[in-house]
Amino acid sequence: MVLLKDVTVTFQNGVTALDDVSLTVSDGEFAFIVGESGAGKSTLIRLLINEIPPTSGRVYVNGFELSKLKKSRAHKLRRSIGYVFQDFKLIDSMTVYENVAFVLRCTDATTRTIRNRVPDAISLVGLKDKVKCLPRELSGGEQQRVAFARAIVANPKLIIADEPTGNLDPKTSLEIIELLKGLNEKCNTTVIMVTHEHEFVRAFGGRTVTLRDGKVVFDGFLNPSL
């Protein structure tokens, strides 16, 4: 579960990126966070992954209260979250297999666990034939699929997708969102997807939170138009 209570984030230059935001995303929910550039979406993500602290208010993610979480314990929070980023954030020097397996290696998983789960995750995103490829040998869509496989391989409670379709063509974007939707429905994984592409949100519908100038201006359900 994700809970933000009266959260304000003001940067050192005086800019308030989030202004008294309160938000709850329950376990198993799929929520779109939408807003124009500068609305506070990226700040919200950075807050949730403990990259920046709130100036005031409280943030709870998967049972961790972030204002009380020490930097040295941040890895415990991050292991309970799967990430999909706009720029994929794959490790260039690792193959597809190693990029996905890295998440499990961080948790000191057994070799057997790695050998079982990694091929499954890669197969799920349809890249079974590209396990030995380096990220630079893949298309943007394929790289995002690897990022998706990496995000799900450790069975996280929460997936945060930050503009996952930002660098992809419409067809691949739809496939990525369908993968996220499928995971949410089949595995009851909580998904928070940040996007500025309203057409996708309207197409898929569901819980939608709109940010504007750091404030929540809409929090409700949209009917899918697909």
């Binding site: 992954i49 941040a74 890895h75 415990k76 991050r78 292991r79 990430y83 954030k89 794959l90 490790i91 260039d92 020097s93 890295f102 998440v103 961080c106 948790t107 990496r150 450790a154």
Partner: peptide, 10 residues
């Protein structure tokens, strides 16, 4: 690369 590793829980 280090930042990515940190973000995925290393």
């Amino acid at each position: 690369e280090i930042t990515i590793m940190k973000l995925v829980g290393a």
